[in-house]
Design a protein around this nucleic acid. Structure first.
Lengths: 343, 343
DNA sequence: CCCAGTCGTGAGAGCGCTCTCACAGGTCAC
DNA sequence: GTGACCTGTGAGAGCGCTCTCACGACTGGG
């Protein structure tokens, strides 16, 4: 038997449902789409017919005429390595998936780290396969967002576009405020030599947190001291190494504002290796409040980023935009200091 | 101005490309699809025209006629909580994303834990929005797979269908072999009272690993001793609690085969709390070899699951099936023992 | 020199759906 | 009674693409 079912689908078209229900295709379509101007008898007949032959609307056909796909892309402009090891991304993915699913839409998940993958994605999105894009990118690089918008694909960015690009939609946490908050707390609790181990400074999150630190130092009337600023990164290793360097240069530090929780774990390791007691000798504050922060030994004092809010807010902005419900262009969500055992 | 761009797309159709290139729609289509029987002059003209007006094929239209969508769903039949905390899922997602992207296809990521979400997904998939499904489910529950297959959607499961369901496609790790391997190693290194803290027994992975333990115990000519089997779970907490119970009941254990790495971390905590030294007093072997296993203190001896292979193998099976390249129905991938500091 | 066999091409028929439009049949105000 | 207005319905025109089929223009073997 060469005869075989056509790859995947088993027919059952609207036409058949209509015939079986004794109505026109138009009426069957109205019922199935839940339109209001249909008689009860027609509605019942169509529903029954659809049930009997296990009808499922063909989405491609619908898409073709409506111009909508009812799916949203979640695009991570990062290497997979990073994406899958950073709790931040996972939290965003989770809350976006949640928000999107609750609207009855589907989430198309893609990682694009190489230029060729980005090209392919733009073509994919422009081809109408998704109605909009949630772009997760820590790089200042908003080129991708611009390309998508130019191709007619509404996009909302998580992070902050580098050059205050008007007309780009984005959602960000108040990183500046968080850096300031942490620093102020340390100064207020009597620390005298408050240093910082920054995150990656080529990303707005890293740069903004550092800016917050600087702002607090200045507001306290202290002189900015560049030897107290160690350039690090968001990973545990980066935090460890930067802290080790800092300790050599400035053995007198008694507090460190670190750019991320993972980096703070590394910083604590470096402190311990240098024979310093955390809290007693040197206070440490992280950033993010990932789950491990609470489980860490000692439990990490940190600035909590509202990851779930970030994801749901950006999703809502995108959906509002798709529905032409005049949405905000951007949102900066507040962070809060979570006091635990390290500061 | 009421006039506004039609939601998302900005036209540029094949028709326009063809007109601009001075050929028919058919020829333009041939060029764009990379067909071979086209003259060089026509090809160049079409390419140039497409470039000039930034043409992107409309995927819905293509889908409608070809019956293919060029996207694959990654469906997790689990609660989000679990999905996002278990490195296993993340590893699978990552390798599937990799494999799918390298074929130029898109991955549609969905989590369906509630019945209503499952229903919606089946309708979605049956509606032709994806060509096939990679189903990740640790439950024996293969109902979902059956429903998808019945709806004409090719599906490959990660795990093992409970009742050796013929005609269902799946990929699994050799959990039985892994359980045996770990147990044999402990016996061979002179341990006398080898216990096990199982994973969740309602999942094939948990049950199979236990079966491997039993097989090794019997093969060694020892009597099966049910007091050495503590029913646990895959999480750290479950491992901790089951181990604590085990220690009360059988203070004489000198080795434990644990159902997962996370659970093994819990087990080690329980041992330490009970004043036992890991390795010196009690050897511990985990299962999975997640990243944290190597970074753990002490580094965990464990059975490595080939997570990346699992993901790429299942993707390949699905793609083979879609291409009618007679694929295998199932694959059981080998595991290996990774010796570190706990056994 | 003719006919079979390529090769490149265009015409045109859909794929399955939505949506506009026209219309029949009713209801209501005057 | 007549016009204005609903309300439910069907006919039919596409959406943008692929793919079959037929056809003209070449080839080359006899």
């Amino acid at each position: 038997m060469t005869q075989q079912t056509r790859a995947g689908r088993n027919a059952a078209t609207l036409e058949e449902v209509a015939a079986r229900a004794g109505v026109s295709r138009a009426t069957a379509s109205r019922v199935l789409r839940g339109a209001s101007n249909v008689s009860d008898s027609a509605r019942d007949a169509v529903m029954a017919a659809a049930q009997e032959i296990a009808y499922t609307p063909n989405r491609a056909a619908r898409s073709l005429v409506t111009g909508r796909s009812d799916s949203i892309a979640f695009l991570v402009d990062e290497t997979e390595e990073r994406m899958f090891s950073d709790p931040f991304f996972l939290g965003m993915l989770r809350s976006a998936q949640d928000a999107v699913a609750s609207e009855g839409l589907q989430l198309v998940f893609t990682v694009a780290s190489r230029e060729e993958e980005r090209d392919r994605f733009v073509a994919y999105a422009a081809g109408g396969h998704v109605d909009g894009v949630l772009l997760i990118s820590l790089h200042g690089n908003n080129d991708l967002q611009r390309r998508l918008e130019n191709a007619g694909v509404p996009t909302v960015l998580s992070g902050r576009p580098v050059r205050r690009a008007r007309n780009l939609y984005y959602v960000d946490a108040d990183n500046v405020g968080g850096g300031r908050l942490a620093t102020e707390h340390l100064l207020a609790s009597g620390r005298r030599v408050v240093a910082t181990v920054t995150g990656a400074l080529d990303m707005s999150a890293g740069a903004d947190r550092l800016a917050g630190y600087r702002a607090a130092i200045e507001a306290a009337g202290l002189a900015a001291d560049e030897t107290l600023i160690a350039s690090g990164g968001f990973t545990s290793t980066a935090g460890h190494d930067a802290t080790a360097r800092l300790l050599e240069q400035r053995p007198d530090v008694d507090a460190i504002v670190v750019g991320s929780d993972l980096a703070a774990f590394g910083a604590i390791r470096a402190l311990q290796q240098a024979g310093r007691r955390v809290l007693d000798d040197v206070a440490v504050i992280g950033f993010d409040d990932i789950r491990e922060a609470a489980e860490h030994d000692p439990p990490l004092t940190t600035v909590r980023q509202p990851i779930a809010d970030l994801g749901s807010t950006m999703t809502r902005m995108l959906l509002d935009r798709l529905a032409d419900r005049a949405p905000r262009r951007s949102a900066v969500l507040p962070v809060e200091l979570v006091l635990r055992a390290t500061a």
